Computed example of a mutant assay.
Amino acid sequence: MTAESHVLELVRSGTSDTAVLEKLFGDLPPAEPEFMLGTWAGGVFDETDAMAARLVKMRWYGKRFNDAENVEPLLCRGEDGSIHSFEGMGFARLRQVAFRGTVSAAMVYDSQPIIDHFRRVTDDVVLGAMDAKGQGATLYFHLTRST
């Protein structure tokens, strides 16, 4: 099974352990910043993780990359199902950053010590790794291009 097909199976099932995701992340090709432009629906693999649980509680929908200087890192669903940008954690910028030996697209928060790194799974799916300084383990998540 390729890394790409393995990640797609994990996205479908919604679960995995961090060690498996860490290996798969390292096996995937980097995403270029231009590839990330647009709106992406997101999901987490481990809803018991503290940060993932917060995202679920916020009704996290995904991320919107308007351009390199204007990223909405937390799109959330309202009670009525509408999607809005949660501005409580600020905005972010899209950059190329080295992470675990590979340079790839990364979302760097303006006001938080958090960088989300992206690896390409398919033309419409990426595997993300949230590197939150001081938070301990890396949180893995997935994004699917939204139409």
Score class of each variant (00 low, 15 high):
103 V>Q: 10
30 P>S: 11
46 D>K: 08
32 E>Y: 10
15 T>E: 14
102 T>I: 15
39 T>V: 13
142 H>M: 08
145 R>D: 04
85 S>W: 15
81 G>Q: 06
143 L>R: 03
146 S>L: 10
115 I>C: 09
106 A>W: 02
83 I>R: 04
142 H>A: 12
103 V>E: 15
40 W>K: 08
29 P>M: 03
76 C>E: 08
67 D>H: 11
89 M>Y: 12
3 A>Y: 02
72 E>D: 15
97 V>C: 09
35 F>L: 10
12 R>I: 10
9 E>C: 12
139 L>F: 03
140 Y>S: 00
74 L>S: 06
120 R>D: 03
72 E>C: 08
129 A>G: 06
111 S>M: 11
133 K>I: 12
64 R>N: 08
142 H>P: 01
28 L>V: 03
82 S>Q: 14
76 C>F: 09
4 E>N: 11
43 G>S: 07
131 D>A: 04
27 D>N: 07
147 T>N: 14
98 A>E: 15
79 E>C: 07
88 G>V: 07
139 L>E: 00
53 A>F: 08
90 G>I: 08
69 E>D: 15
20 V>F: 06
36 M>I: 02
129 A>V: 06
104 S>F: 02
22 E>K: 08
74 L>Q: 08
94 L>G: 01
90 G>A: 09
34 E>N: 09
67 D>V: 10
51 M>A: 13
138 T>G: 00
91 F>H: 13
131 D>L: 02
70 N>G: 08
118 F>S: 02
78 G>W: 04
111 S>K: 12
22 E>T: 13
109 Y>S: 11
61 Y>F: 15
78 G>Y: 05
66 N>R: 14
22 E>L: 05
137 A>I: 00
138 T>N: 01
75 L>K: 07
95 R>Q: 13
10 L>P: 00
25 F>A: 00
46 D>C: 07
27 D>T: 05
96 Q>P: 03
125 V>H: 03
9 E>M: 12
131 D>Q: 06
84 H>Y: 15
13 S>D: 13
31 A>C: 14
92 A>P: 01
137 A>H: 00
23 K>W: 10
100 R>E: 15
66 N>P: 00
63 K>Y: 04
131 D>S: 04
95 R>H: 11
45 F>C: 00
42 G>L: 09
74 L>N: 05
33 P>H: 06
24 L>N: 01
75 L>D: 01
85 S>L: 12
142 H>T: 10
74 L>D: 02
